[in-house]
Simulated scan of single mutants.
Amino acid sequence: MPVKHEKHSIVSMILLLVFIFLATDIIGKNIHKYYFKSLFRKNDREKEYRIPSNYYHHGLKPNINITKTLWGNVFYPIATNSLGFKDKRPREILLSSGSYRILFIGDSFTEGVGIAYENTFVGIIDNVLQKKGIEVLNAAVCTYSPSSYYAKVKYLIDVAGLKFNELVVFIDISDIRDEAVLYRLDGDKVVDRKEELKINAALNEKYKADLKKKRGCYQKIEEILRRDTIMTYLMVKNVHDLFFSRDFSYDYDSINFREASWTFNKGIYDEFGRAGLEKCAGSMDRLANLCRDKKIILTIAVYPWPDQIVHHDLNSLQSQFWTNWAKKSGVKIINYFPHFIQPNDDTARIRAILDSYFIPGDVHWNNEGHRKVANIFLSDFSIQTIK
């Protein structure tokens, strides 16, 4: 009888210790979340410098200098020049320059969210080319798409009076969704697509619900543990990894985005991909014609999201479409897909690429990703002339 009582006491003690450990872990996680939530709220200053535009929908406030702002879980400084372009510091930009001048435009990747200007690919290119007497400006802003590219460049040339020699447009994977459901051109100005946006919101919810249904029992448990604990999650994860391989979706919040999936998912391509490409091409045609009229060299660039890397989407619809468009339009294209994706990449190689070049839990490049993009651009750069 004493032996049985002793075993019962040991089991009770173990259960009590497990309960105390789990309770402490949950409390610690909640303190951690509360602390960082307060810290993030304090430093979330985007509303101070992201402003609306009557011409190109939205932009950045001119001549701001904020030492700490927030993108996701990343703190970084941001400054803009007199034109409202992200820059190394607030400064006056002359509308006309005696130097060869390159204007970059794109969305959040080209703006360089989460990264100080000097570490963005545009900032790195700027630093290198200024030593050769070439001036670099960055007109990119989050959630721009081809209609924004056209409207902003048109405004900068015809209204602001900005002079430049070359335009480099980084066309994002999400531009196709944005052009189909968010924005449209009304004359030379960008306006919202209201009805399409409502339909897209409903389809987004369906897509997220379908993803949840596909998750296995263990993945659901790990998701709960990651949300509510620290040590328990790490212990369970490490034990699981000893015996089982891990799906990318366990560790990377940067994949399974609907706006990126149109290049390899036919259903999503049918929802907005086909129409989005057509609308993008229309806006880019107008931009190409504008550049020809103003004798401005046009270059475009395309690059993958983590979703394309995970799905080995080397010969992507994105790169194929814009390669054909560039050939037809007589403009240079820089295709970054082969620099991030190789046909025989295994799981370890894909994980290394995602860990090396992207902000954790984010689709955007980290410092090394921006350096890679800049180096590829610079390795092939030469001043072009109008043919």
Rank of each mutant, 00 (worst) to 15 (best):
P2Q: 08
K4L: 13
M13I: 09
L15H: 03
L15I: 12
L16M: 10
T24W: 13
I27F: 15
I31H: 06
Y35T: 11
K47I: 12
I51C: 03
S53P: 05
H58K: 15
K61R: 15
I64G: 10
F75V: 00
T80E: 06
T80L: 09
L83P: 02
K86L: 06
R91Y: 10
R91I: 09
L94C: 03
R101H: 14
G106R: 04
S108M: 02
S108V: 07
T110H: 07
G112F: 09
V113Y: 05
T120N: 03
I134V: 14
I134Y: 07
V136D: 07
V136Q: 10
P146E: 06
S147E: 02
Y150N: 02
F164G: 07
D175I: 12
L185D: 01
L211V: 06
Q219S: 08
I224F: 14
F248Y: 15
Y252N: 07
D253A: 14
D253M: 09
I255S: 05
A260S: 13
W262L: 02
K266I: 09
G267Y: 07
F272R: 06
E278K: 14
E278P: 08
K279M: 09
G282F: 11
R286E: 04
L287E: 02
C291V: 05
R292Y: 00
K295R: 15
A301S: 06
P304E: 07
L314I: 14
S316L: 08
L317P: 01
S319H: 01
K327A: 13
G330Q: 06
G330C: 06
K332Q: 11
K332R: 10
I341G: 04
A352L: 07
F358Q: 07
N366T: 10
N367L: 10
H370C: 02
V373K: 08
L378D: 00
S379N: 15
F381M: 08
K387G: 12
